[in-house]
Design a protein around this nucleic acid. Structure first.
Lengths: 147, 147
DNA sequence: ATCTTATTGATACTTAATCTCAATTGGAGT
DNA sequence: ACTCCAATTGAGATTAAGTATCAATAAGAT
């Protein structure tokens, strides 16, 4: 079980992962990561493009998509489907665990911090001979407001 | 723990869910569901559009998108982001459980049938006062071929 | 068999994402 | 600090994905 990391921590860690993976830490990537970490979860690419365009040091459209792809590949962010249309991106913490509940009626998203599937993951690693480095658990249900 | 339902079972069950939700069981919806259930998981909308166009009784582009949206809303299918670009759709079984591992290197998808997070879900239902009807568990790692 | 309403398909349209290529920049090495 | 080179960027063109409109059709209730 782990506490949610604060924004600054997430940001620093993500930068490290970029660096140690051999990619350049450019102004565009730094600024974009800042946007993602500060704003919080569930931004669409359009959201990010908008924010990036309004920044003091604007980032181009193509670079936003490229960076989102790169960060996804590195496991730093993760696209997920909340509503129709474009994916929403979440920033994955260092331990790679993220879980939320989506209400099927109102699409409200409830973030979950307690997550105890570690034992199951251990078993899967052995059974499939694979090293698991992260997960996304999405739960679907009907929230109390929608009952 | 549950066995994976066979295609026919998935299909019949999905039709039932459509019907009991008050939607008409049209030829287009039936054919499209058949495509989804028979072909298996991880088709993109473009894949489905192609298959639907080649069928004996072709289904129009717009109807494919409409039906994919409807089936998603009903929890019968679920978009996920495996690679870049458009989402891939998976057909959710009656029990609403789906889990897979995605290799971060080669994007290979390993389906998982054993899934033991039921106790955890019970606890979450109580804690968040919500009824959970399904989940998607995505695990990220590096498969043996990519080590 | 009839009727009502949901659904469909064709087309036009909007929005999202990708490609290309010259200009720029991070950072390794000197 | 300075130089250099490959990685990265931005602008704009292009392609692909998804949506809207509306007359025609079909499901299924009576």
């Amino acid at each position: 079980m782990s506490k949610p990391a604060d924004h600054q921590q997430l940001f620093e860690n993500a930068l490290d992962r970029l660096r140690t993976s051999g990619y350049k830490v450019t102004a565009a990537r730094r600024d974009l990561l800042k946007i993602l970490c500060q704003t919080g979860d569930h931004l669409t690419s359009t959201d990010v493009i908008e924010k990036a365009a309004q920044a003091k040091r604007p980032i181009g459209r193509a670079s936003v998509f490229r960076t989102l792809d790169l960060l996804t590949e590195l496991g730093i962010i993760r696209p997920t489907y909340l509503h129709r249309g474009a994916p929403n991106y979440i920033v994955m913490p260092e331990n790679g665990h993220h879980a939320h509940i989506i209400c099927r009626d109102c699409s409200q998203v409830i973030e979950i911090n307690e997550c105890s599937i570690d034992e199951m993951i251990d078993a899967l690693e052995v059974r499939h001979n694979i090293e698991i480095t992260g997960h996304l658990l999405e739960l679907y249900g009907k929230c109390k407001d929608c009952e």
